[in-house]
Design a protein around this nucleic acid. Structure first.
Length: 645
RNA sequence: GCCGGUGUAGCUCAGCUGGCCAGAGCAGCUGAUUUGUAAUCAGCUGGUCGGGGGUUCGAAUCCCUCCACCGGCUCCA
C-alpha cells in the first residue's frame, strides 16, 4: 500500500501501481471523465501512469493549466496523425502546446498546404478522436528509437533523438501513429471534442534561420464544442479591437507607402491623444523631480562608438549619414541615453545633485527587418517616454521603487488591472553576451529583485533575458480580453557611466561613478497607444479622448447656437466639435456613436431659447436637458474622478 | 531578411475557368429637404485594377519581378 495525499490534504491508501485515473474513479465517475493528466509530486504526468510510492497527487482537468497543455499536446499528436493520413510521407519535426493551443512543424515535402485544406484535417482529427484511441507510453532504447525513425525516414526526429540520452527516451502511440515524446498525454483521443486549425506559417527548423524553413500549422482544441465556439467569439473580438483597424476608423494614424514602411503618420486626433498622454505623464514626472531635456534626432557616430551601441548594433542600424563637405558621420538616434550622458557630463556634478532625473520624449529610429513591422507596435521611428536617472549606488533601490510607483499609477488611471513584473537577469552560463563587472551585475540584480518584492509585485524571473548592460524589470499587462503585452521597463546600467566616464564629487571630496537607470513607463508612445486602443476597444477614457463632446444641431438653423455652445464648453476646457452637416439628428447620432464620442448634445429650438443642451451619453442614450454650465461641471467632475482614483 | 497569403475608387468589397466601355454600398461634391435621439431623397464626381516586364488578336484575370500589407519564424539597444 502507498499513501496518496490530495490537494485538500486528505490521504488515501491505495495499492502500489494504482493509476491517478483509478484514484479519480474512486472519488467520482464524473471526475474521472474529466481527468486529463495528473500532477504527482509537482510533476505533470499521464493520468494512466501507475503510482508506485507515497505521493502528493493533483488531478488535472481542463480548468488547470497542466490539463489544458496536456490536451493540446495530445491534440498536436492527433493533428500529426491526421496530416500523415492525408499527406503520406510528410516529415514531422516538433509539435508542442503553446499558450493558446498548439502547433506542429512539418516538412510537407512536395505537398502544398494552405488554409483551404484546414477543414479536411479538422474532420479527420475529429474522426480519429471519436475512436477513443489510447495514448500508450513506451520506454524505448536509443537504438530502437533510431531504428524506428530511420525506417520511417524522418530526419528531424532522428536529429532530436541524437541529442537525447539513452534510457530517457519515450514513445507515445495512439491509433496508427507513434511519436517521439516525453509526454504527458491525455488517456485517449476521445477527450478531444472540438478542433480548429488556425493558421499556417513558416518556421525555421530549430528556430535557426540557417536551417530549412518548415511549415508550422497552428491549431487549438477543446473538450467541448461550446468552448471552441467561445474561443472563436474571442478571436472575433480581438479582430474588432485591432488597433490598425480602429486607428483607421477613428482617424488616429496612417501609413503611407511613399513615406516609408514602419513610419507612422499621426493624424490630428491621434496626435491629440498622444500629446494628452504625454502631458499626463509629464505632470506625474514633474512631481517626482524629473527635469525635461531635449536632444537632436542624430548624433555623431563617435557618440555610439563610445556608448558601445555601434559595435553591438551598428551593422543592424540605418546606415550613417555623411556630411557632404567634411565627411563627418552621423547616426539617426537609436537611443536617447548617450545624449543624456553628455548632458550629465556637461558640468561638474556633486553628490548633492543626485539623483539627477533627465526626461525626454525622444524620437528614435531603428532599422527593423521588413517582415517585423506591425501596425504601431513595431515601427522604425518611434518616441520613447524616456528618462535616465543618475544616482549613487545607495539610491538605486529607492529610485527603482519610485519608478515602479509611477508605472503602477499609470496602470491604475488607464485601467490596466492585471499585470506582473518580469525580472530579467543574466544567463550566467554565457558571460560573453554581457559587458560590465560581475560585482556590479550582482549588485544590480539584487537591488531590482528586492524592490520588486518590497513593492509586493507579482514577479517572474527570466534568466538570460537581461540587456547586455544590465538587468531589467519589465511590466507585462493583460488587456481587457486577456492578451498579454509587454509595457514599461526599468533597466539598471553600470556600463554607460563607465563608458562615458561620468563622475560626481562625493561628500568625501572624491570622484565617484554614478549609476544610471533607464526607464520608460509606456515604452514607446506608438506601442502604448496601440495597446491602449486594443485594451479599451477604441473607447478612450473621457479625460483622454480627442473629442469629448459632439454637438448636434437639429437643423442648420441651429448651427450658430451650436457653435456658441462649443465656444462656451471650450472655456470649461472641454473638447467639443459641432456636426454642422445638413443631416438628420438620427444620422448624426449614429455616426457619433460609431466614432465612440462619449457625449452628444442635441440642440434645437427649445435649447436655443433657454441656452440649454439635450445631453446623450454614448451607449446609454438620452440624459435629459440641462444648462450648459451644469453639463460642463458634470463632465469635468467625471474627468476629475477618473484622474484622482 | 525568410516561408506562406493578400493587393480592384478615400473606406468595405464584387468581378478574377482571359473577351461588350471595370461594378456596388458608404464617403465626397451638387441640389432638394430644415429635420428631435443609431442611416432623408435625387443627381454627379472618382480607379492607367500596387509598380514594372512578359505571354496573347485581346490581361484586373495567366507567368516573371519589385513594393506594400497580413499570418508566422528569426531579431528587438
Amino acid at each position: 500500500m502507498i499513501s496518496i495525499t490530495l490537494p485538500d490534504g486528505s490521504k488515501r491508501n491505495v495499492d502500489s501501481g494504482t493509476t491517478a485515473l483509478q484514484v479519480a474513479l474512486s472519488i467520482s465517475e464524473g471526475l474521472a471523465r474529466n481527468v486529463l493528466a495528473a500532477e504527482v509530486n509537482g510533476e505533470v504526468v499521464d493520468a494512466t501512469r501507475p503510482l508506485t510510492q507515497d505521493s502528493s497527487l493533483k488531478l488535472l482537468t481542463w480548468s488547470d493549466e497542466g490539463g489544458k497543455s496536456t490536451l493540446w499536446h495530445s491534440s498536436a499528436h492527433l493533428m500529426a496523425e491526421s496530416l500523415e493520413a492525408l499527406y503520406p510521407g510528410i516529415k514531422l519535426a516538433i509539435g508542442p502546446p503553446i499558450e493558446n493551443g498548439f502547433y506542429y512543424d512539418i516538412d510537407f515535402i512536395n505537398y502544398s498546404f494552405s488554409q483551404e485544406d484546414f477543414p479536411a484535417v479538422e474532420k479527420k482529427m475529429l474522426e480519429l478522436a471519436r475512436s477513443k484511441n489510447e495514448y500508450i507510453r513506451k520506454e524505448i532504447s536509443k537504438s530502437e528509437a533510431i531504428a524506428y525513425f530511420t525506417h520511417k525516414d524522418d530526419p528531424y526526429k532522428l536529429e532530436l533523438i541524437n541529442d537525447l540520452e539513452d534510457g530517457s527516451i519515450t514513445f507515445y502511440t495512439q491509433g496508427n501513429f507513434t511519436d517521439l515524446c516525453r509526454g504527458p498525454h491525455i488517456p485517449n483521443t476521445g477527450f478531444i471534442k472540438a478542433a480548429k486549425l488556425l493558421n499556417v506559417a513558416g518556421a525555421y527548423w530549430r528556430g535557426d534561420e540557417k536551417n530549412k524553413m518548415l511549415t508550422r500549422v497552428y491549431a487549438i482544441s477543446f473538450p467541448k464544442q461550446s468552448e471552441l465556439d467561445e474561443y472563436l467569439v474571442l478571436l472575433e473580438e480581438a479582430k474588432k479591437r485591432d488597433h490598425r483597424k480602429l486607428g483607421k476608423e477613428l482617424g488616429l494614424f496612417h501609413f503611407s507607402q511613399k513615406v516609408g514602411s514602419g513610419l507612422p503618420l499621426w493624424l490630428p486626433k491621434g496626435a491629440d491623444l498622444r500629446s494628452r498622454l504625454q502631458s499626463f505623464l509629464q505632470t506625474a514626472q514633474k512631481k517626482d523631480g524629473y527635469l525635461p531635456v531635449i536632444t537632436p534626432h542624430i548624433g555623431s557616430k563617435e557618440l555610439y562608438e563610445t556608448s558601445g551601441h555601434w559595435a553591438k548594433y551598428g551593422a543592424d542600424s540605418f546606415r550613417p549619414i555623411e556630411t557632404p563637405q567634411e565627411g563627418e558621420m552621423y547616426m539617426l538616434k537609436p537611443m536617447n541615453c548617450p545624449h543624456h550622458c553628455e548632458i550629465f557630463a556637461s558640468e561638474p556634478r556633486s553628490y548633492r545633485d543626485l539623483p539627477l532625473r533627465l526626461s525626454e520624449f525622444g524620437t528614435v529610429y531603428r532599422y527593423e527587418q521588413s517582415g517585423e513591422l506591425h501596425g504601431l507596435t513595431r515601427v522604425r521611428g518611434f518616441t520613447q517616454d524616456d528618462a535616465h536617472l543618475f544616482c549613487t549606488a545607495d539610491q538605486v533601490k529607492e529610485e527603482v521603487g519610485k519608478v515602479i510607483d509611477l508605472v503602477l499609477y499609470i496602470f491604475k488611471i488607464l485601467d490596466f488591472k492585471d499585470y506582473l513584473a518580469q525580472v530579467s537577469l543574466r544567463d550566467t552560463g554565457n558571460p560573453s553576451k554581457y559587458i560590465g563587472s560581475d560585482a556590479n551585475w550582482e549588485k544590480a540584480e539584487k537591488a531590482i529583485q528586492e524592490v520588486a518584492d518590497e513593492k509586493g509585485l507579482k514577479t517572474v524571473v527570466e534568466l538570460g533575458e537581461a540587456a547586455f548592460y544590465g538587468p531589467k524589470l519589465d511590466f507585462m499587462v493583460r488587456d481587457a480580453i486577456g492578451r498579454k503585452w509587454q509595457l514599461g521597463t526599468v533597466q539598471i546600467d553600470y556600463n554607460l557611466p563607465e563608458r562615458f566616464d561620468l563622475e560626481y564629487t562625493g561628500a568625501d571630496n572624491l570622484k565617484h561613478r554614478p549609476v544610471m537607470i533607464h526607464r520608460a513607463p509606456f515604452g514607446s508612445l506608438e506601442r502604448f497607444v496601440a495597446i491602449l486602443i486594443e485594451h479599451c476597444a477604441g473607447q478612450f477614457p473621457l479625460w483622454l479622448t480627442p473629442e469629448q463632446v459632439r454637438i448636434l444641431p437639429v437643423s442648420e438653423k441651429f448651427n450658430e447656437y451650436a457653435k456658441s455652445v462649443s465656444t462656451e464648453l471650450e472655456n470649461y476646457d472641454i473638447r467639443a466639435l459641432v456636426d454642422e452637416r445638413n443631416e438628420k439628428v438620427g444620422k448624426k447620432i449614429r455616426e457619433a456613436e460609431l466614432e465612440k464620442v462619449p457625449y452628444m448634445l442635441v440642440v434645437g429650438v427649445e435649447e436655443q431659447k433657454n441656452r440649454t443642451v439635450s445631453a446623450r451619453k454614448k451607449g446609454e442614450g438620452d440624459q435629459g436637458v440641462l444648462s450648459i454650465g451644469d453639463f460642463a461641471s458634470r463632465l469635468n467632475r467625471e474627468v476629475e474622478e477618473m484622474l484622482s482614483r
